[in-house]
Design a protein around this nucleic acid. Structure first.
Lengths: 77, 77
DNA sequence: CACCATTTGTTCGTATGTATG
DNA sequence: GCATACATACGAACAAATGGT
């Protein structure tokens, strides 16, 4: 069955991996919603949902007007 | 203070509380998406998002054509 | 300070797909 | 195949915050 995850799940999973692997260290700024949407070929709503999951897991922190940053310490503290 | 959570957050929080308090025991069926949407006065999309959070937290399990059930053991096995 | 552009966050309506019965 | 019900997505819109001019 593969159980292929939905796009928003895939995106969330993808960034979770990048953060946990250190590719995106604490304080790092994620691409804007529009950027990610363009990269994955989905709408901004879908990206927003994916980021919401990351936010729910305390992996990232979004700052309206600035961007989304990886949680952990810098930029946020 | 207050920081009133968004509707979908509020709904998810509400059901999380019901489940954790035992008001909704494992195997219990949640109201249908349409029902919840009607109760809270929001669209089904918003309810679906709230349930997605519950699902992400392994609090519930959705069965297309049947409904959403509280996770834990029964019904889900 | 005022105005505008950018960016995040959330919602609505609608459509499609899948699964159950 | 139809009715019911969950899951996800898109497009458009509004609200709030930030920052540049």
């Amino acid at each position: 069955m593969s159980t292929a995850p939905a796009p928003y799940r895939h995106i969330a999973n993808d960034f979770t991996d990048k953060i946990k692997s250190g590719e995106l260290p604490p304080g790092a700024k994620l691409p804007s919603t529009r950027e990610i949407a363009d990269i994955y070929g989905v709408s901004m709503v879908t990206v927003s949902r994916a980021v919401s999951l990351l936010h729910d897991r305390d992996l990232v922190i979004g700052h309206p007007g600035r961007g989304v940053f990886v949680a952990g310490e810098p930029e946020d503290g």
